[in-house]
Computed example of a mutant assay.
Amino acid sequence: MKKDYTSSYTDEATDTVVEVPGIILAANRHVLRTEGIVVEALLGQGEALDDYSRNLQNESVREKELKNDLLEMEIKMKKLALEILENKDQAAAQLFALLNPQPKPKDTEAEAQEKPAALVR
């Protein structure tokens, strides 16, 4: 037999071509039961998640990282506001107010009643 001879096997179900050295005597397919997949994922090199589950897990981690980043930025803004107050820096306070606008307070019921009602057509 030639030492450099290779045989190829095509899996009809997946159209996967496998090339092996020598002559193929038999080709067997084995299906792992669910327990075997879990054991392989825990002990072996396998991964137990499909693409959707993996992406869902990645997005969950990303969401938590973004929330942590947002909290960190809010803390920095509050520290900056305290520093501006302590230094009594008017220019910095005006810039801070431009970057961090405060929400307008809602009208009280008395003020709302004093305003004329909108015309309805």
Rank of each mutant, 00 (worst) to 15 (best):
E114H: 08
E74L: 11
K3D: 03
V18S: 13
Q102S: 07
S60K: 06
A48V: 13
I23A: 04
N28P: 01
V20C: 01
L119M: 05
D15Y: 07
E86N: 14
L43A: 12
K76C: 02
T6N: 06
D50F: 00
L85M: 14
K67S: 09
H30L: 03
E83A: 15
P103W: 02
K79D: 12
N58W: 01
K76F: 09
P21K: 11
E19N: 14
D4H: 06
E114I: 10
Q113P: 05
V38W: 13
D15I: 01
V20F: 03
L43C: 08
K106Y: 02
E40V: 00
Y52F: 15
R62A: 12
K78M: 04
L43G: 05
D89C: 14
A110N: 05
L82E: 13
S60T: 00
V120H: 12
L66Y: 08
E59V: 03
E12G: 01
Q94N: 09
E86H: 12
T10H: 03
I75H: 13
L119E: 05
E40L: 05
G22E: 02
E47Y: 09
N58Q: 11
E83Q: 15
A13R: 14
R54E: 10
K76T: 02
P105C: 02
V17H: 12
H30E: 10
L66F: 14
K88A: 15
N100V: 02
P103R: 04
V39T: 10
D50G: 05
N55G: 02
L32W: 04
D51V: 15
M73W: 09
E47F: 15
T108F: 13
Q45W: 00
Q113V: 11
L98P: 00
V39N: 11
D4K: 03
Y5W: 10
Y52T: 04
V61L: 15
N55T: 00
P105N: 02
L80P: 00
G36V: 12
N28F: 07
N55D: 00
A92L: 13
Q45N: 14
L25W: 00
L49D: 05
G44K: 06
F96W: 08
R33P: 05
P21T: 06
G44R: 02
M77C: 05
Y52P: 00
I84V: 13
L32R: 03
L98S: 10
E59A: 14
G22A: 08
Q57N: 05
L25S: 09
N55Q: 11
P21D: 04
I84G: 07
K2D: 08
Q113M: 14
E63G: 04
A118H: 06
L70I: 07
T10D: 00
H30Q: 07
T6H: 10
E59I: 01
D11H: 10
L70Y: 13
P103K: 06
D4G: 08
D51F: 15
A118T: 04
E19Y: 11
L56H: 12
P101H: 07
L82G: 14
E65R: 10
K76Y: 04
V120I: 14
E114V: 11
M77Y: 09
G36W: 05
A27Q: 03
K106Q: 01
E111P: 02
E114L: 13
E109N: 00
A48F: 08
L80Y: 09
E114Q: 12
V61D: 11
E63F: 12
A110S: 12
V120P: 07
A41D: 07
